[in-house]
Design a protein around this nucleic acid. Sequence first.
RNA 1: GCGUCCUUAGCUCAGUGGUAGAGCGUCACAUUGACAUUGUGAAGGCCGGAGGUCCGAUCCCUCCAGGACGCACCA
Length: 722
Amino acid sequence: MEPRYDIKEVETRISKAWEDSGLFNPDICIEQGKTDADAEPFSIVLPPPNVTGVLHIGHAYEDALQDVAVRYARMQGKRTLWVPGTDHAAIATQAKVEKELSKTEKKSRFDLGREEFLKRVNDFAKASHDTIVKQVKRLGASLDWTREAYTLDEKRSKGVRTAFKTMYDLGLIYRGNRIVNWDPKGGTVISDDEVQHEERTATLYTFRYDKNFPIAVATTRLETKFGDTAVAVHPSDERYKQYVGKEYDAVFCGEPIHIKIIADESVEKDFGTGALGVTPAHSMIDWEIAERHKIPAKQVIDERGKMTVDGIVNGKKTEEARMLVAEELRKNGLMEKEEDVVQNVSIAERTGAIIEPLPKLQWFVAVDKPFAHGSGFLGIGTKTTTLKKLMYNAVASGKVKFTSERFEKTYFHWIDNLRDWCISRQIWFGHRVPVWYKGNEIYSGVEAPAGDGWEQDPDTLDTWFSSALWPFSTLGWPEQTPDLKTYFPNSLMAPGYEILFLWVARMILMAGVLLKDIPFKTVLIHGIVRDSKGQKFSKSLGNGIDPLILADTYGADALRMALIVGAPVGNDVKFDEQRVKGYRNFSTKIWNIARFIHMNKPAGSASESLKNNEKPRDGGEYIKEFNTLKKDVTAHIEAYEYHLASEKAYHYIWHTLADKIIEEQKAKLRDGSAAEKEAAYRLLEHLLLESLKMLHPFMPFVTEAVYQIFRPGRMLMVERWE
RNA sequence: GCGUCCUUAGCUCAGUGGUAGAGCGUCACAUUGACAUUGUGAAGGCCGGAGGUCCGAUCCCUCCAGGACGCACCA
């Protein structure tokens, strides 16, 4: 053996050996007799990384976790499939290319036109994809690349169109004019789950529309008040009871408005004046109030964030309009109070723009609408159900298990508050809405309708719509493929908790409607990798670390260990480069343990019998000790307590096998009789190889490399976990 | 407002109804050895605070304080 553990040489060589063997593909495992054809399947699909650039350390962590599960399953002899793929990440990818385009060529996507722009995005996505694949492979992930998928490839696109059409026919997808989250910077609508909140200070103005109006109202968004169509008060508020039901014509900053006074439970008596100016077109809440009371909506802000009313604010941006209105109110003695308040502002997740709620004609998924389900799935009954109920019951029934119960609570809470899911986007990169129009005719189908004059909807679908199909689109759905039959539902899914709603819930939804089944049995929800100060890794903070550089410096094995040991899977991981270094030392330690044992291999034919993995005759108590530990480690892996399993394996190899057992056997190896030397060697070799097997899911490279030195021609990754 | 989680060694964090654990760091000693080092040992803790249940609580329950996060939102 080489005196030094050459990380890069070994990891590169082993990577290639695995790839050449084809054993990441379960079909080849069966062909070669490594797996029984009727073995229990174990399937998992890689949460597809976005083709927006490169992998970060969070991906390395997520892949490591899954690879532990996959390698363990494979070693158990299961028919193991881990499907790789990437996500086109519609809005994120488009935004990235647009930014680049504007920087280097000073052009917008409209300057290029849809076709040329999409070509650019696809080129970028392709380059990004290639980088990502290389990175994932480097980290030792045992994915079956022969089955690679892309959310925007031909098969997945057909799946998307089929899903849309099916749900459209069920009445679960509808087109409606409703208030939506408009991202003025991205120029598109986004869903509730893509909106984030940020605390900001704002001025709360208390004012009257005009001198004759009987009630003062409070708002932070004065400029929207041109769109007020009602004033709402609490039904039990004695102060305003006399006005409820009355209607007023008023003049607000020179513009006529018509206000109806209504009573609604949602109004808080103690806030502001206890009266709420209702602006249905520019506030989610107000929209809902207006719906309840059949109050009309009046839009006063356009998609560019500019005022559309006549008079002093015409054409102005919202912030400027607000100042103008405030000034006008003060001038006319209508402003009663101005105070600073802290409020939460809605921000678009991808572009950082402040959300402008606007009424727009968009496509939605109806989550509360009863539909004919026609199966007894999840004990829902055979008649009708709603998507909310489907999502709820999948988890409540225990069919889908979350590894941490606390996430189930979060999940249920989210469902309770869920509104219809807006799925159309005004961007170009993505799945085009599979709907065609001709005059008043509307057609939804998997393919375009025959005949002339049909115009396809210009919008694209929320990227999460295609991601939601991932557990089965990757297996060939809507075709009834053998893979789908064997590997669906997936055994496991390993997403981060930050996409519990965006993704996990939607997969459950889609599988429930389209396949009348759960998408996966177990959800292993993991935390976020943070830096040593506890901050998220992000470009703006400049604290990003390239996992590949770490892998090249310390080894992918060491990186994996540093991420897995020390934090339970559901918790956040605090990442510290020092720890990677520590596990690099551990790799070296393993190499040296092996080298020492290898050097002490007795010459002659006796050792040839070792090839058959015979148990050594001596050292029974050591073997017993090992077996107890192995059982313990196995139990931890089964319970997804990878942090404990890996730590115990680590501790055993270093501080029991190396520090105690090898030290104790040294004398015999040096001075013993031939028989004693043989016995000592057999014992050490046995314990080493068994230890490598136990550690393999966590540190696949060094364990495989050493194993093959002792067992040439064999492959540790398909040895049996007993 | 509703909800979840966290508080354990200098740091980062595990863990358990029965005398407190790891890694890193620190200190002392040993060592060129299978070991780009390693080994042996040491120091270091009222397990956030107060109650309760229990023979016994760091662990279970209640409350409090501090911190993180999710959802909803005050217009």
